[in-house]
Design a binder for these strands. Structure first.
Lengths: 215, 215
DNA sequence: TAGATTGTTAATCGATTAACAATC
DNA sequence: TAGATTGTTAATCGATTAACAATC
């Protein structure tokens, strides 16, 4: 890898997808160049911060000009690892599982759903959004034969951790967890716990917070 | 409101749902008390941080004892505003809209789905997970008559901002945005932009990041 | 060259952690 | 009372912002 390895701050990593989305929109609008000042205005981030963030990974800009949109977009895609293909499986063919299967915005980006699993006999063997639902008992066999990198857990809370443990043993690299509980894994495997309800609670907090009544 | 109004740090607000979930689990397990040390161990947060966070809102603990689980849980529920009922509408009866309609873990908590809207004539009038899909043209009439506090935007990106603008005019208080773009609103209205893909990108970054190869 | 904008350092701000006195 | 654990202050750490020299 050719980028600077002085540990990247967590806050910077979390902003990368936002930069990526922004640059994709710029590209769609046919914009060839963008300055940190324009990005700042459009994205609501400080311009210094943007330049500093990007410089964690190398000097992609040019003084007096700014950044080339296609160049910067592809650099960030590469940093995020979006230039590769990933085989993904979905565990749990309920609501959330179905939503992911039908949600094409990431499948178009190199994340390929290669298998769907469930433990419910009523679902196993059935068709789910075009995918065959496999018996969870065949997880080990399937993963070891299909180069699965990422697994999305869409099971109830009660099953989430034990599924995660199985996935870790199978050397899946990343777990995208939608169960309403956090799962933990050993170092070397990575988890993103998506807590949908949490964002609703925060919204609810703000609606009720006394703070904004001061302004 | 009886809690301390010295601006609550953003980082604290974002941790509140996590405390809430944890305490709910404790309560389910019949635990009557919990110390910051135990919370620290279970949640992976620093004990000082936990005590400091909770003290933003008042002294809920007792020296030598810790915190009463039911008391602390209900205090946090109240701080988040989860003791109230909220009427919610869903805009967009596609994948994500359906997933929300069927996702009962928040409906059981006082968030009541009172209406579902779409602009697609094939969907309008149809049944979606037990809800009648209404014509988006009737949004204004409906909202003004049904005390709607929160709206979940589950439309494509192209429609999200204009829907948000209409919701702001209708004085909806909170917008829970699932469209894969951020929407902006005037002060006094609150938005939570749920960027599902962002968490997948971050996961992808970590899988590829050179950092962990040093350990 | 003159103007614009980056890359980078220094200053500020906010969040986390350690330490311990207060107190149940 | 002795032990435990909070509440809170002080120290540390990390992230953001301002400023400006470098340079296209």
């Amino acid at each position: 890898m050719d980028w600077n390895v002085d540990r990247i701050p967590e806050a910077v990593i979390r902003r990368l997808p936002k930069y990526y989305r922004y640059l994709r929109d710029c590209e769609r609008n046919g914009e060839a160049r963008v300055s940190s000042a324009k990005m700042s205005k459009d994205m609501g981030l400080n311009a210094s911060q943007i330049r500093r963030d990007l410089n964690c990974f190398g000097g992609f800009g040019q003084q007096g000009y700014g950044y080339s949109v296609p160049r910067l977009k592809s650099e960030i895609a590469r940093i995020l690892g979006l230039h590769k293909q990933y085989n993904m499986i979905i565990i749990g063919a309920g609501n959330m599982g179905h939503a992911l299967m039908r949600y094409t915005s990431f499948t178009s980006l190199g994340f390929r759903i290669v298998g769907v699993f469930d433990n419910n006999p009523d679902r196993v063997g059935a068709d789910a959004a075009g995918y065959e639902v496999r018996n969870i008992d065949t997880l080990e066999e399937f993963v070891s034969q299909n180069n699965v990198t990422i697994a999305a857990i869409c099971t109830p809370s009660s099953a989430a951790q034990s599924i995660a443990n199985r996935l870790v043993r199978l050397q899946v690299k990343g777990i995208w967890n939608f169960a309403p509980c956090e799962v933990r894994v050993e170092p070397g495997v990575f988890v993103e716990n998506v807590q949908l309800n949490d964002s609703l609670y925060v919204l609810c907090y703000r609606i009720n917070a006394p703070e904004h009544e001061q302004f």
